[in-house]
Nucleic acid binder design. Sequence first.
DNA 1: AAGCCGGGGAT
DNA 2: ATCCCAGGCTT
Length: 361
Amino acid sequence: MRPPLGPAFSTQLLLWFDAHQRALPWRGAPSPYAVWVSEVMLQQTRVESARHYYERFMQRFPDVAALAQADEQDVLQHWAGLGYYARARNLHRAAQIVSREHSGKIPDDPTRFASLPGCGPYITAAVQSIAFGAPLAAVDGNVKRVLARLDADPFPVNHTRAHRHYLPRAQELLSPHRPGDHNQAMMELGALICTPRNPDCPRCPVAAFCTARAQDTAHRLPVREKKQRAPLRHFVSVILVHRRRYLLFQRPAKGLLGGLWEFPSTERTAQETAQEACARYVHALTGHSGAVPQHATQLQHAYTHFRLHIDVYYCPVPSRALQAPTQLPHRWLPLDDVADFPLSSVNQKILRWAQQHNARP
DNA sequence: AAGCCGGGGAT
DNA sequence: ATCCCAGGCTT
């Protein structure tokens, strides 16, 4: 049996939030557009990671019209390094829809807003409650953790149906008077007090309502399903140079790192060394068989579903002709111009290496 | 329902 | 090394 909470819970929560919330760039009477941009950036992304990107993005695209008119490459350029690039592409498309079909005004109707690309249940509840006062509970990773502890609920928070499971409880607790602040307060509580490890129960404003606190089991909640470890894959990236110009490819519009640019790269098979893979790739790319790739550096990186080991090579070639036209857009660029293209985090590291070594190993 | 999609900070 | 974050889309 759950303790009867009623409005007492949100009263205590909001008192704490009013006194202890962090000063963040998207707080303090933000425009609906500012709320939207911040919520999209904060998906699966910590506040401190998104903060700088948010400031820069809002300076460059201050309103829906500015974003709608922008070139997608410009939008990606301001997102490069933040990850989950479909967020940027969807936000850009959504801004164009708002501009064309809603006279530039962000819909204050949850159903219409939810039909925009990138606007799922969480974004919709967050934006509609914070910007327009709609009484919709926003359920993210923080909220699920807080609720799991509040009720000592063993339902795994990373289960496919976790959102469906925790939403009714979140909705029942939601303050009808200040739904936007209540939603932010739940997330702020999860970020500052009810943290994944070592929750600070003595300083929790709603500890009196918490079943896990009463049972002293907060440190063992929430329950989480095991997931298998990401496999390791080996890639070779090559800094291909012809007369101080560097070859860059653009990745396909969809899928991993969609629309971003990168130094040429290929996956290494188990049967070849990195050096052999690089020579094989350069030959396939340029037809030039006498290439002697020089090892530049190694990088490690982790994506959600696999880990990456990358050997980076430096390889001058005698011609700019490409043998097998890869269908993918490419450019031969002066090193100083490469940074003007949206690069993934890994390729930003490769670029920095090239700059530091002045293009020579 | 399960898989795909980034990156970094905390532990 | 592992976890996990202001999740949504595709299949």
